[in-house]
Write a protein that binds this DNA or RNA. Structure first.
Lengths: 224, 224
DNA sequence: TAGATTGTTAATCGATTAACAATC
DNA sequence: TAGATTGTTAATCGATTAACAATC
């Protein structure tokens, strides 16, 4: 709060915050007042220096040599940066299997987001309720976003129509887009687009897996 | 196929392959025989050189100056690297809201993975079927993995029990883990762990959003 | 005081981008 | 041939890691 910081936090650091949050929260539960970078690093198998740098980026005060960082203050600052306190409303477009999945997923609120409505083109979906959220026709998307001051849109439509939906969201005043479609969307510079691609995670996994299996086969061959 | 390459592909490059695949597939649909790096780059808003390097990493032949890369051969090579052809079986542990979501999600097969069974501790879940997959007690996890030669495990349990499940999976012969719990798991070196953290994506999104909103407010103030 | 831990400044590393000669 | 596009070698950039003085 006291630091102008906010903008100076790298995406890499941001992506580690949820991990820190958890560890520090545990420390609080355990009644600890201070926690040190080496302790956190050990827990997360990260480098001590990285943790120190990350904490420095979000922490409004300084750590105390020999003791570490105030658990309570760290928690407050991290939560502040994460913006967990003020829940932001979002709409989701594309109630297919992934879309339905996300509509039913309750974990978003933990990170400051709440999906308030779903939209789809299919008449089969329109009118239904998924995960407690009503599904409406895409016709009403713009109107809804404007009326409810929606700033976040989640795109779970097929790649073909993703750009079109993106344009629609942007024209309705949405500023941030969480894109699950396997393409890179085009939008004005001030719109922030986060591409979530599980395909990539799967690829990396199966790549490593393949290497691992090959290594195992080599081992077996040697033994024979 | 002809290159030993496989291991030399960076995670960064891997994560862009799904995008390339899509563009190149479109080119094929359009009847094109060749596609150039600049063309792909323009489509994806990437740098031409990056595309060239990425393609070089996966392509078993060389591109042809002035023409570009053979669409068919590129497709074959990318698919080969992605291992999309041979579907790998996976189990999912933790049939909560995210777990159920993933069990119902059909998109994994597109990237070479198929969830064949779900496991949970809750008696409410056990015996049910989600997304066509049976949910069994965690008791039977090890046995199932061994019997079906499962090499991939998906963890969607709460952070508290994630490590325990991870250990269980590893002892049952699983080699790759897709972890959705917000903590970093410990496992023997040869086990590949991919952490999917949507929290991070959400954080980056809301961070940019906040900056954007602040910028807008400044604009408004100026006008007043 | 001594030692652990901090913040800061410098070195390393990997990925991206630039420059350029080779070639169809 | 001329020009577009390739592959390769070098420069830049950002993030991670190391080194070290400051301090509770």
């Amino acid at each position: 709060m006291s630091k102008p910081a906010v903008s100076g936090i790298s995406d890499q650091t941001l992506s580690r915050l949820p991990y820190y949050l958890r560890i520090i929260d545990e420390a609080k539960q355990a009644g600890k007042e201070y926690i040190s970078a080496p302790a956190i690093a050990a827990e997360l198998k990260l480098h001590e220096i990285q943790v120190r740098k990350d904490l420095a980026a979000v922490f409004s005060e300084n750590g105390i040599p020999k003791k570490g960082f105030s658990v309570n203050k760290l928690l407050a600052d991290i939560k502040d940066v994460m913006g967990t306190d003020k829940i932001k409303k979002a709409v989701l477009v594309g109630a297919g299997s992934l879309g339905s999945a996300l509509l039913s997923y309750e974990g978003f609120s933990e990170y400051g987001m709440q999906i308030v409505a779903g939209f789809d083109r299919s008449k089969k979906k329109i009118g239904k309720t998924i995960g407690g959220k009503p599904i409406s026709s895409i016709e009403f998307l713009s109107e809804f976003c404007r009326q409810h001051q929606i700033k976040i849109g989640i795109i779970t439509v097929p790649a073909d129509s993703a750009q079109e939906i993106c344009d629609l969201l942007v024209s309705a005043g949405v500023l941030g887009i969480l894109n699950f479609a396997p393409l890179r969307l085009t939008a004005p510079e001030q719109i922030s687009i986060q591409n979530v691609n599980m395909a990539a995670s799967l690829l990396m996994l199966s790549q490593h897996l393949r290497q691992q299996l090959e290594a195992q086969e080599l081992e077996t061959e040697k033994k024979l």
